[in-house]
Design a protein around this nucleic acid. Structure first.
Length: 256
DNA sequence: ATGGTTGCTTAGCAA
C-alpha cells in the first residue's frame, strides 16, 4: 500500500465502503508504535458495531505487514519462525474465524542477479519450508499479499517489456509454482482464467494511464477454502483518485 | 540502458 500513514484516510474510506471481514496489508512503512491503531480500531464503528482489530508486524521505513479483522485474531505469528536472521518484517499470520490467514510482502528483488534477488529467492524457499514444516494442505489457510511475481504472461499487459524482470523471471515463477504445488489454489485465476486483469501499475512510466499493469497481488487458499471461494475481483477504482497506492486491492469472497 | 513517481527521511534508498 506504500505507507499506511500516508494513505490512512483512503484506507478508512475503503473499509467503510467494502466492509471486509479481513484485510491484509503490506508495505506499511512504519513501526508498530507508529501504526494508526486508534483510527483503525474505530473505523466503521457505528450503531454499536465493533471496529477492526489489527495484528501488526511493523518496521521502520520499509516493509511492514498487518491483518485487520472484525473478529479478534488469535495465535498471531510474526515472520517465518525459522533459524534465519532476517530483520525484514514481511510475514504475519493469525487465526481468524477458524482460518489461518497470512499477510505476505514478498521481496521485490531489485535487479536479477543482485543481493536483493538472492534474498527474494531465499525468502520464497523459506516460505515453502515454513508450510512444509508447520502446516498441512488440509488446513484452512488463506495466503494473501504482494507476491511480487506475475504468475504467467496472461498476468502482464506488456509481457515483452517485463520479460526476464524480477517480477516475471522463470526462477521466481518456478519458486511460486512450487509454493502453489504444496497445496494452494490461486483463487483469482479460478474465477478469471482468461487473465488480462492487473493489480499493480508502476508510478513511474505512467503505468496506470497506459494500463501497463501486472497481477502480482494474489490470494492463495488451500483446497477447503478455495472450493468455497465464490468471487475474486480487483478493485481497480481504488487505483484512481488522489494519492492512490500503486496497488489495487483484491477482494475475495468465501462462503463459510 | 535509462527514465519516470512516491514515501520516508533528510540526499539517498527502495519500490
Amino acid at each position: 500500500m506504500n505507507s499506511v500513514r500516508a494513505r490512512l484516510e483512503r484506507l478508512l474510506a475503503w473499509l467503510r465502503k467494502v466492509d471486509p471481514d479481513v484485510l491484509c496489508l503490506q508495505e506499511l512503512k512504519c513501526t508498530d508504535e507508529a501504526f494508526p491503531h486508534d483510527a483503525i480500531s474505530h473505523a466503521c464503528r457505528q450503531a454499536g458495531e465493533a471496529g477492526y482489530h489489527a495484528a501488526v508486524f511493523g518496521q521502520k521505513t520499509y516493509n511492514g505487514v498487518a491483518i485487520l479483522s472484525r473478529s479478534a485474531p488469535a495465535e498471531i505469528e510474526l515472520g517465518m519462525a525459522d533459524d534465519a536472521d532476517d530483520p525484514q518484517a514481511r510475514l504475519i499470520s493469525a487465526l481468524i474465524d477458524g482460518f489461518r490467514v497470512f499477510s505476505a510482502y514478498f521481496p521485490n528483488g531489485g535487479e536479477v542477479g543482485s543481493e536483493k534477488w538472492d534474498y527474494k529467492l531465499e525468502w520464497m524457499r523459506r516460505l515453502l519450508e515454513h508450510f512444509d514444516h508447520r502446516a498441512s494442505p488440509s488446513d484452512r489457510i488463506v495466503l494473501c499479499g504482494d507476491f511480487n511475481v506475475a504468475i504467467d504472461d496472461s498476468d502482464v499487459a506488456r509481457p515483452e517489456q517485463w520479460a526476464g524482470s524480477v517480477l516475471c523471471h522463470d526462477d521466481v515463477r518456478d519458486a511460486l509454482e512450487r509454493l502453489r504445488d504444496w497445496g494452494f489454489v490461486d483463487v483469482f485465476r479460478k474465477h478469471h482464467p482468461e487473465g488480462g486483469i492487473y493489480s499493480w501499475w508502476d508510478y513511474r512510466m505512467l503505468g496506470f494511464p497506459k494500463n501497463d499493469g501486472l497481477r502480482i497481488d494474489h490470494v492463495f487458499a488451500t483446497a477447503g477454502p478455495a472450493s468455497r471461494c465464490t468471487s475474486a475481483e480487483v478493485d481497480r477504482d481504488e487505483r484512481k483518485g488522489k494519492k492512490p497506492s500503486d496497488h489495487a486491492p483484491i477482494v475475495a469472497t468465501f462462503d463459510v
